[in-house]
């Protein structure tokens, strides 16, 4: 009988250990180091000095806002595109096109982010494939008249990579849910005279809103905290917050460690909260448009 009672606790033991040890333990670890308590390096005592240094550093706010701008743009474009693709997919009754689109979306899902960076360079460069296309069709005269799309201040390259990866992710998950929505809803809606947009708003979005919400939040969080894309494609200024954190992390000067960890704690907690706020706002928005 005791064993019976212990069953659920045994079942959740692995996840608790893993999360507790590495996420909880990690957070405690970085907080301690950010306060300047690193006994291995002979640093003792607690002070919030490193936080003050990090926050008052030049361009800190700018970096943070820049990252939020990138994440927000990415998640809004990817979610909209993803939902539109999913809805078009469900309502397009052509089997062979559906198979083709599903396969290519899956293809988009299996390419790693780091490789999409390579693709972005290949496509968006001033001598890249888009520029070549425009040049060969006579729309631009020299490669220099093609706009700078990577390593640019507006972060177009970074946004392009996240949208390229995020859209298939959202579309596939939403298709998965929308495919299960019974045709009866659509038939009833059509009989009552609703058009495609109304059907999408009133039937499909409300029934798949949970999936839209969490996939969108995942993309938002990923764009905010991913290292490779932000680091490889960012301009010199402004620098995304994760690229800034990584530059601090690889700084060989051990005096910088508390500052690195302070920025890490800020990104961990504040970043997490921003994702929460984004999710909450999106939830309200989805509820509103389905009215």
């Amino acid at each position: 009988m005791i064993f019976k009672k212990a069953t659920p606790y045994l079942l959740i033991l692995p996840i608790l250990l893993l999360y507790g040890l590495f996420i909880g333990g990690g957070l405690i670890g970085i907080i301690l180091e950010s306060l300047g308590h690193i006994p291995v390096l002979g640093l003792h005592g607690f002070s919030i000095e490193s936080y003050i240094v990090v926050v008052t550093q030049k361009n800190f706010i700018e970096s943070f806002l820049y990252s939020i701008y990138i994440s927000l743009t990415v998640s809004l474009i990817a979610s909209t595109l993803g939902v539109v693709i999913a809805y078009t997919f469900i309502t397009c009754k052509n089997k062979s096109i559906q198979t083709l689109v599903k396969k290519t979306l899956q293809l988009g899902l299996i390419i790693p982010y780091i490789y999409v960076v390579f693709i972005a360079m290949l496509m968006l460069n001033q001598t890249g494939i888009f520029a070549r296309l425009l040049y060969n069709t006579g729309i631009i005269a020299t490669p220099n008249s093609f706009p700078e799309l990577i390593f640019d201040r507006k972060g177009i390259g970074i946004i392009w990579v996240f949208v390229f990866k995020g859209t298939p992710f959202i579309a596939l998950f939403v298709i998965n849910v929308m495919a299960r929505i019974s045709n009866t809803f659509e038939d009833v809606g059509r009989t009552l005279g609703s058009g495609s947009i109304t059907l999408l708003r009133r039937v499909y979005i409300p029934l798949s809103s949970n999936t839209i919400l969490w996939t969108s939040c995942i993309i938002f969080a990923y764009a905010l905290g991913s290292f490779e894309v932000n680091y490889l494609l960012s301009s010199i200024s402004p620098v995304p917050i994760s690229a800034r954190l990584y530059s601090l992390f690889i700084n060989p000067d051990i005096k910088v460690i508390p500052q690195t960890m302070a920025l890490n704690v800020i990104l961990f907690l504040l970043g997490g909260s921003i994702v929460g706020i984004y999710g909450f706002t999106l939830k309200q928005f989805l509820r509103r448009i389905s009215r």
Binding site: I23, I218, A221, S226, S242, F249, G271, G272, G279
Partner: peptide
């Protein structure tokens, strides 16, 4: 999934 991954993994 909702914690910025660089912050999560440095932890």
């Amino acid at each position: 999934l909702f914690i910025p991954s660089i912050a999560l993994f440095l932890g």
